[in-house]
Design a protein around this nucleic acid. Sequence first.
DNA 1: CTCGACTCCTGTTAGC
DNA 2: TGCTAACAGGAGTCGA
Length: 260
Amino acid sequence: MPEGIEVEYYRTTALRALRRTIKLVTANDRYFLKGETESEELQSFLLQDEFVAARRVGKLLLLDTKHGMTLGIRFGMTGRLLVDGYSAIDYLEYSTMRNESSWDRFAIGFEDGGTLSVRDPRRLGGVELNPDIDSLGSDIYGINGKELGVVLKGSSRPIKARLMDQHQIAGLGNLLTDEILWRASIDPRRSSDSLAKDEKRRLLYHIKNTVQQLTELGGSHMGELQSSRNASGFCPKDGTLLERHKVGGRTTYSCPKHQK
DNA sequence: CTCGACTCCTGTTAGC
DNA sequence: TGCTAACAGGAGTCGA
């Protein structure tokens, strides 16, 4: 599913949509409009305008217009971004390989004939005008030890739930978090404030390293743990049968032998 | 503060 | 063969 890494790809794709006059806004799926955003509002603010910047905070893609508006796009679990029919990502874990235009929940047409669309089979994504980004935590691509320290110190929740909380750290999803904790040899159920100094350092290293590595490899699903993330999977490090739990309401796989 | 339970959504799949 | 129920999880709400 799209996590911060996938949305970073989408951001790169969105660069193709900059500096092109918007001629058409198709927002017929009202369910896909979030917050106070209305279709008429999108029309009046976007038509005749153009995007001048594509930013990303966590899993949220932000397209700034010349006139000072910001279009926020969330992709939920199965959303893709297409510009001129091109998608940076063809394969999405837990989504489908089928690719139907009827799943376009939101689309923009440019004066030059091109398009930008959000194709989301399950409609868990959404579009919002001027979304709140201040409540999001530090982005995964730039997080440092001090910020991670604050995030961990402030909570007794399970470490995995804390890491996935977008208000604390923005961009980590279920797969990435399982992968990072597995690499860092930390049990996902550990309380956040129980980590020792060396464990925090290790965790930071693996957040940065995993994000960078999987960005280069092509996505959140490229982790070493991924192929074993199933009911009868074995730990790629030591061969132990992986355990499956619900942590923070999410399906979690971890190795009972080396994740402490 | 924390938690579980529930909601949204729909394509896929396990099981009968 | 065909149906159904469970599952996937990002994000939000609610009551305890």
